[in-house]
Amino acid sequence: MTLGVDLIDTNDFGLSTSVNWSTNENEVTDLYGTESINLSPGASVSSRAVVGYPLGVLYGTGSKTNADGSFDLNSNGFPQITSSPMVLGDPNPDWRGGISLNMRYKKFRLNAVLEHSQGGSFSPRTLWVLRRFGTTQETANRLTLDQSLVNYKGTTVPAGTTVRGNVKDFGGGPVLLDENWYRTGIGGGFGDNQAYNFSIADATWTKLRDLSLSYVLDTPVIKNIGLNDVILTFTGRDLININNVDGIDPEINTKGVSVAQGVEYFTNPQTKGFLFSLTINY
């Protein structure tokens, strides 16, 4: 849906805006005998066509759950991986929308485009793998325990100990996530034997896609040297990028523009751009 309105249009001042909104719902109904087809081969979290799900769902080993949806925990209170890969999330956003604003005041022009993508899942595997090496913000955290906690290996770490890691409750009381979880356990690293459900992030993002400010010079001096006008423009691209993922832009995709979506693995980020331009009309 697109809607455009010219709000004000006088000699000195003009203001127009347009908004667009879109959503896409689909379901894979038949794959001729197989349950899923890998659209992004070679990755432990893949984007797939899976019967009964939207196209491109994220797929990988997850955590076992009980009938009520809670985690099926081991005796130490930690999740256990599923025996086979499962659907981990849907990278398709609930909706996407944009708003653009064009303003003119005397010799100034201002154009802005704001875009928003709501919902959907994203798999930033860069962060997942780097947990294994202890080089993410999450693994850098240091805390002093105010209670004795068990780690993934089953060792009890006494209260008062300062450790690197985090405390988390998977449903069986708080446990300590330390290197036994992130490095040698199922909470970070390589391969298919990981609880990849914890690698899935919310893909919602908002971006100031485009902002440009221009000034039109058409003074007599300009006219006298034989020019119509000169326009000075500053343009910024992606100056503001708001999302829930630490250090990775959820809009990027390892597979680029394709049916495989929401997968990221040391993928080059999008660039932020600043542009100054000078336009001479004669």
């Binding site: 432990s44 599923t82 490095r183 356990g185 199922i186 690293g189 390589f190 298919d192 034997n193 990981q194």
Partner: peptide, 17 residues
């Protein structure tokens, strides 16, 4: 000792293996 093979050694392995 570590990584993929440590997971498998600890009986965490998926059918993908």
């Amino acid at each position: 000792f570590s990584s993929l093979y440590a997971n498998i050694y600890g009986y965490s392995l998926s059918t993908v293996e």
